[in-house]
Structure formats: structure tokens, C-alpha cells
């Protein structure tokens, strides 16, 4: 059929972080994997990201950040998702991450946390893995 189910991903950047290359690379790479990808652009708020994700009915939010704030960002985005009744949307994080951050993120239920140097296939496989 024409309309097979597509994986929809929202790539989001929250707060004051100019580093966009990773998000843009992911944007085109996920498209090339046959996914439908939406990018929020930089300097967003957690509420804005959650609202966009809920409106677009995405399967995953991929948070990108290079300021070392991913756990804080994820926590606020999750809280905003809850307000909107959109807790079913998965959240993953990528960018500047310490092992400590990863532990914190996993406690919140944020999986697929990709630090610097993560090969693209790992990210792609993680997203695909959610839907098997």
C-alpha cells in the first residue's frame, strides 16, 4: 500500500545552544532511512518542544544539546509532555553527555542516549528498535 506506517521523529534543541551540526546531520540521515523528520530549530522552550511533538504526533523526540544540560532539558520536556497527555511519546538524547548524565536520563525513562562519536547506525537502530 501507499501509506505504510512511517516513523516520525522530532529533533529538538532547547535553550541557548548554537551547535546545530549534529541536529542537521541527523535530520538528513533519518530522512534517508525513510523516516519523517521534523526539526524545531534552535533556542526552543521545553513547552514549545512538547507542544510541537504532541501536535505532530511524533513517535520520538530526539533532544540535541551541547551545553551539558541534557538531563535538565529532558526532565522539563517530560514534564511538559505529561501536561499535554502525551507521555506515550518516547524521548532520547544526544550530544554532550557524561556517564553520570546517562544514568540520570535512564532513571527518567530516556533511553538511546548518544554521546560524542556515536556512529549514526547506533542512533538509527535505536529508533527502529522502539518499533519492533
Amino acid at each position: 500500500m501507499n501509506n505504510e506506517r512511517k516513523i516520525r521523529v522530532l529533533i529538538a534543541k532547547v535553550g541557548c545552544d548554537i551547535h546545530e551540526r549534529g541536529a542537521l546531520t541527523l535530520l538528513t540521515s533519518l530522512r534517508d532511512e525513510g523516516m519523517e523528520v521534523i526539526y524545531t530549530g534552535r533556542y526552543q522552550t521545553p513547552a514549545g518542544v512538547a507542544h510541537a511533538a504532541a501536535s505532530e504526533d511524533v513517535d520520538v523526540i530526539a533532544l540535541s544539546d551541547h551545553t551539558g544540560s541534557l538531563p535538565i532539558i529532558a526532565e522539563s520536556v517530560l514534564a511538559e509532555l505529561k501536561k499535554l497527555g502525551a507521555e506515550d511519546i518516547k524521548v532520547m538524547a544526544g550530544g554532550l553527555l557524561t556517564l553520570h548524565d546517562v544514568k540520570d536520563l535512564e532513571k527518567m525513562g530516556v533511553t538511546g542516549n548518544c554521546g560524542p562519536g556515536t556512529p549514526l547506525e547506533v542512533i538509527i537502530n535505536h529508533i527502529r528498535g522502539i518499533f519492533v
Binding site: 512511517k6 535530520l27 530522512r31 534517508d32 524545531t40
Partner: peptide, 16 residues
């Protein structure tokens, strides 16, 4: 690929 970059929203972020 059958994939897509949906980029219109980025210009309308102020209404998020």
C-alpha cells in the same frame, strides 16, 4: 528513501 524532512514548522515556531 520514502523519508521526508518536514521543515515548514520551523518558520512558525513562535506559535508553538
Amino acid at each position: 528513501s520514502g523519508g521526508a524532512v518536514l521543515g515548514d514548522r520551523i518558520r512558525m515556531q513562535e506559535h508553538n
